[in-house]
Structure formats: C-alpha cells, structure tokens
Simulated assay, not measured.
Amino acid sequence: MASNGSTFAVLVLFSLLVSSNAAGLQPAIGTTFNVLNYGAKPGGRIESTQAFVRAWAEACNFPGKARLLIPPGIYKLGETIFQGPCKSRIPITILLQGTLQAVSDASSYTGKGWISLDEVNGVTLTGGGTIDALGQNLWQYNDCKTNPDCVHLPATIYMTKVTNAKIKSIKLVNSMGFHMHITRSYLITIHSLSITAPAESPNTDGMHISQSNGVKVARSVIKTGDDCISIGQGSTNVTLNQITCGPGHGISVGSLGKRPNEGDVAGLIVSNCTLVGTTNGIRIKTYAASDPSRASGMLFKDIIMNNVKNPIIIDQNYGSNAQKPSQVKISDVIYQNIRGTTLSPVAVDLSCSSTVPCQNVRLHNINLQFIGNEKITSTCTNAKVGYSGLQIPPPC
C-alpha cells in the first residue's frame, strides 16, 4: 500500500496535468496544428489566409516539436507570411497534403511573396501537395520586357533570413512571378520538386537564389518560361545536382551588376543536369556599365544539352545600357564533360568585358553537335581560355 507521501505526490502530479490541459497546453512532443481547427475552409471558394496565419503562429510559439498540417483539399490564400523567429529549437514541419491556390488580385499583395517564410530558423516543407499561384490570371500585367523599372509579381515562395530549411516532395505550378525566391538565407536543402509553367509565361523562374550561403538543390524537374534556376548576387557555396530543365532559359548565373555594390558570387557547382529545348544551357550574364564585383570558382560538369540554342554562353553585355563595359570580373570557371546537341552553330560563346577580361576559363571534354548544315564554331572575346580533351566545337 502506498504511503501518505507517495499518494500526495501522485495527487499533485495529476492535479498539474489536469490544470495544464484546462489551460490549453499540449504535450511537448509531436504536437499537430491542423489548419482546419483554426477556421480554414477547403473547397477553394472561401479565403483561409487568417486561419493559416493563426495556425502557424501557435506552431511557431510552441516550445516543442510542432507540425503544421494542411489536409487534402483546396485552400484559397492571399498574401500569407509565416513569421519567425520561433520558440522551439526543433524544426517545424509544414505537412502540405492539399492544394493551395492564390487569390488572383494583384492589389492583394504588398510584399515580394505570396507565401513568405521570414526569419525562421528550422523548417521543413513537404507532404506531396501542390502550390498553384494561378499566375495565368495575372501574367497580362507583367510589363518587364518593356519597362526596366517594372515591379515583379510576387514569388510563390519567398524566403528571407531563413536558416536550416528543407523543402521536398511538393509541386509548384504557374507562379505569378518567380516560383521560389531565396535571399539572405543559410543552409537550405531542396529536392524532389516539380515546378511547372508554360514556356511563354513571363519571368516565372523556377528558382532565384541571392545573398545566400549553403543552398543545395537536387533531383528536381523544372519547366518554366524563364530561368530554371538563377544564381544572383552575393550567393556562395551553391550546389545544383540532377536538375532536369526545359522549357525555359536554362541555368543562369546572374543577371549580375544591375544594382550598385552587389555582393560577389563564389563557389558554385552544377553537375549531372539535363537541359531540353532551352534558350540557353549554362549562362553567365552581367550588365554592362556595372559596379565592380566578382563571379569566381564555378564548376559545370557532366551536363547533357538536348537541342539547346546557346549551350555555353558568357554574356557581359546584358541589358540595354552598353555604353560602358561591365566591371564584374569572371574567373576560375570550368566546363567539364558537356555533351549533346545545339540549335545554334555557335555552341560556345564567351563574350567577356574589355575592362575586366575573363580569367582562367577552362573547357575539358566538350562534345556538342549542331543540328544543321553549317560548321559548328566557338567565339571568344576578352577571355583567357584553356582547353583539354575532346573539343567540339574547336577552340576559339
């Protein structure tokens, strides 16, 4: 028989548990925050933005392991911000099983993103669901081809000041602007994504990475109307592996040098990728008349080009203002084991700056066959290039 002291201790513990549940507290492990419990309405007709924000706020403020659950169904959302920092040191899981659809009203978006992650340290987005921005309803308002000062439509996912994040096994469809924009972030791992928009859709980059360190993207299929992945200023230690790209504009470093005092790009590896029917293959593009900066330490290897218009291209005269040369210095670039077919007789086009010529560009085992009757060629301007192994087209 229990002593009076033991009985008292058990009663105290039971009393604490009852009072905790009465106060709405949950156990510290594996707590699920279901958006349906916060007023989300599946069906795609009633907007559920505030329900999602409330569910995230509780998950973010929970001190233990938390999961934000979005069950099967269609949910209509306007501008939605998942704001950090959060209390727990354990990454929050966003389990997306349903489909998110955007409100198709440009005036509903005041920021750079439709769904934003801001100052979050530790988050995983997964679940096999779909994020559909319904961009086709707003692309008519994109005037960036004719207006250099245009305001971009919001990105489907906009991540800023995010650390230790994983995004995997979801589908992104028909973004308004970029499908994903990652900036000022650290240690981001992305894989097993499907990103899709029509070839004619404007500025629907699959992913744009800027001012970020330690971003890895792998095993994804990207079909858009612009760059599959673009690496912007200030990006370091970025790895792209097993990306299937096309249609679109290819994989690009840049545009660099558009704005004053941009950060350097350094430490890029692009490997085991396949580009199908893209405008460009591997492209480095910098604006003429830019401020000084650097793009260096880049390796492009084991890449297949299938009917690509410009397989290997450096363009340092990008943009409309070509009165002064670009001051973005490109150096230490390796192209290795690049093979396939080109739609242009100029399969390698290295057009570098006269002010800061490209330094230490190396091509090893290049085998690009032209689909046509003209002789396949290379062009090099203001570039110091080294060659080894097979070279088709022949060196400059």
Rank of each mutant, 00 (worst) to 15 (best):
residue 173 V to C: 01
residue 174 N to S: 13
residue 176 M to V: 15
residue 176 M to H: 04
residue 176 M to L: 12
residue 178 F to R: 06
residue 179 H to A: 14
residue 179 H to W: 06
residue 182 I to F: 07
residue 183 T to D: 07
residue 186 Y to K: 11
residue 186 Y to C: 08
residue 187 L to V: 05
residue 188 I to A: 14
residue 191 H to F: 10
residue 193 L to S: 05
residue 193 L to V: 08
residue 194 S to F: 13
residue 197 A to F: 00
residue 200 E to L: 15
residue 202 P to I: 11
residue 203 N to F: 05
residue 203 N to M: 12
residue 205 D to I: 04
residue 205 D to P: 11
residue 206 G to H: 00
residue 208 H to N: 14
residue 209 I to A: 00
residue 210 S to K: 04
residue 211 Q to R: 05
residue 212 S to C: 04
residue 216 K to G: 07
residue 218 A to V: 11
residue 218 A to S: 13
residue 218 A to Q: 07
residue 219 R to D: 15
residue 219 R to G: 10
residue 220 S to G: 08
residue 220 S to F: 00
residue 222 I to V: 09
residue 223 K to T: 14
residue 223 K to E: 06
residue 225 G to C: 05
residue 227 D to C: 11
residue 233 Q to S: 12
residue 233 Q to W: 05
residue 234 G to P: 03
residue 234 G to D: 02
residue 236 T to N: 02
residue 237 N to M: 15
residue 240 L to F: 10
residue 241 N to K: 15
residue 242 Q to G: 12
residue 243 I to P: 06
residue 244 T to I: 06
residue 244 T to A: 08
residue 244 T to F: 06
residue 245 C to P: 09
residue 246 G to E: 05
residue 247 P to G: 13
residue 249 H to N: 14
residue 250 G to W: 02
residue 252 S to K: 10
residue 253 V to I: 14
residue 253 V to C: 05
residue 255 S to E: 10
residue 257 G to S: 01
residue 257 G to A: 07
residue 257 G to L: 00
residue 258 K to V: 08
